[in-house]
Design a protein around this nucleic acid. Structure first.
Lengths: 161, 161
DNA sequence: TTGGTTGCAAACTTTTTGCAAGCGT
DNA sequence: ACGCTTGCAAAAAGTTTGCAACCAA
């Protein structure tokens, strides 16, 4: 089932999607891209970090290979996303957050009060998205979706003006 | 880019929402803020523009009063949002977009292919959001929601926003 | 008068771009 | 060897902040 010949990051979930994992190097080359240490490191970092901004990815990669540059991270993230290996969502009003895609799509809930991010399987949004498609002729990109709000129970307290 | 077909963004001409409209100056002052020409101009610009980034707001305001500064726009947008007069959503991976709130909340659909932005009434997302609240104990901020994807029929080719 | 506001300029954060050197294939 | 990639540095884009002058209440 899964190709065990690849060294994969300790994501500790033993996903069946590992096949996809082992395949990406080939797919990368097949599309005319080159397999570089930087690209492997960056993908591994995202796998390891779960959710991470480009800056966080850079920091993590640099902890292993100091010479890696920010622009490389940005360029690589773009490539990896094109290949469908990672996705990004906007979990804050600032930098985007990248996460790996192991065949398992999900979207996010972000609490403005406690900052917690919850991953929800796309199926839970299906009825809503299907309705958008039916009513609005709009095909949603579920994996990019982020719903802001707050956990019930989180303190709604704001620091007034 | 195109902001071609904006769904109706009512530019109040005798709307019942005018009550809210006429009220904001009072509410502003009631909260200890001051009513300045800049604040009136900026709110009017958003009303006029429909959807606009801080930069676009600045440009529009400047076309009337050249001396207005970018920092004032940022600071004012923050105040207006706190008062619930405007809201912002992320319609691109870059700057946020502000729109006026005239009592009727809506969220957005953004097509990556043609760039079109469609406003949808929050009620259409209610079942989904209610389910999130029931299942995940999460109270969504519907007005901030943006769903990326593409219109059915739009060319699937990239060359995004 | 008083203290919230503004304009200005500079600092900041995040992302992009032009290049020459470097390296995967 | 070919040409995609990288590192570097500078530029661009978007926002924030310190301050003195200003003005709404």
């Amino acid at each position: 089932m899964s190709d065990a010949s690849e060294t994969s990051e300790p994501t500790g979930h033993g996903h069946p999607a590992d096949a996809v994992q082992g395949d990406w190097r080939a797919e990368l080359r097949a599309k005319g891209y080159r397999l570089t240490p930087q690209r492997e490191l960056i993908l591994a970092s995202i796998d390891h970090l779960g959710h991470a901004t480009p800056d966080e990815v850079l920091a993590h990669v640099k902890s292993q290979v100091t010479s890696v540059n920010a622009s490389t991270v940005y360029r690589t993230l773009e490539v990896l996303e094109q290949l469908g290996l990672v996705r990004h969502a906007h979990l804050s009003d600032r930098a985007p957050t990248y996460h790996s895609v192991r065949g398992h799509e999900h979207f996010h809930l972000k609490c403005r009060a406690c900052g917690r991010v919850t991953a929800v399987q796309v199926e839970d949004a299906r009825p809503f998205l299907d309705q958008l498609e039916a009513d609005k002729d709009f095909v949603a990109d579920a994996g990019h979706l982020t719903v802001f709000g707050q956990c019930r129970g989180c303190n709604a307290d704001e620091t007034g003006p």
